[in-house]
């Protein structure tokens, strides 16, 4: 094989995945011995495959959240509250439980809050084995045609505790440690949307 003619992408990929048929492997190896470019390409692709196969340890969600919270916008001042529209509670799983006289075994509460332009889906998940109680949420804009904002923030405010916040990405999903009391408030800012949820 001429060193000026390089190995095709499919040969390089199959070699990186170590799936080259023996009939082609000999010629490919002979080419690699004389072609630094192909040898370098193969080492790159093999390196990528090995790195992905290795499953390196990842920080937990909590660890990531703490690092992300290092750059969080300051929570709105009391004077700004009115700029955040108050959301209306339209569904609470506890109503269902009360209506059917049942109590869910897992401490999970589901609520839907409504604003003219969006719904907010909230799930309060109780402590599990090795897992702290968590407040999970997602903003669901009603007008799907509009592009989802790229950035936003959600703050949780409880009396006697510092406001905590997380960054909202384009999916509008977030996860926070669950509030410690029954009374708490959430402020959400997601692009032009400003939403206030007050749980009393």
């Amino acid at each position: 094989m001429n060193s000026r003619i390089h190995l095709s992408d499919s040969v390089l990929v199959s070699m990186a995945l170590r799936r080259t048929p023996p009939s082609r492997a000999g010629r490919a190896h002979a080419h690699l011995a004389t072609c630094p470019r192909c040898a370098h390409d193969l080492s790159t692709l093999r390196g990528l495959h090995e790195h992905l196969a290795r499953r390196w340890p990842e920080p937990s969600e909590g660890t990531l959240s703490r690092a992300l919270a290092l750059v969080a916008p300051r929570p709105p001042r009391r004077a700004d509250w009115d700029r955040f529209r108050l959301a209306r509670l339209v569904y609470d799983s506890r109503w269902q439980e009360a209506a059917h006289a049942v109590r869910a075994t897992a401490a999970t509460q589901h609520q839907v809050w409504r604003l003219p332009s969006a719904d907010l889906d909230l799930r309060l998940e109780g402590p599990g084995v090795g897992a702290a109680p968590t407040l999970l949420g997602q903003i669901l804009p009603r007008r799907r045609r509009r592009r989802a904002p790229a950035s936003g923030t959600v703050w949780i405010v409880e009396s006697g505790a510092e406001p905590r916040s997380v960054v909202l990405g384009s999916t509008g999903e977030f996860s926070l440690p669950a509030p410690r009391s029954e009374r708490w408030a959430l402020w959400l800012q997601w692009g032009p949307l400003r939403l206030r949820v007050v749980r009393r």
Partner: peptide, 23 residues
Amino acid sequence: WCSRREPLAWREVVQRYRRLVYG
């Protein structure tokens, strides 16, 4: 952008280097 305290830029830095810094 991080020096302007832009949360989304900071998020990208943390996400980009999370495995390296934790690993």
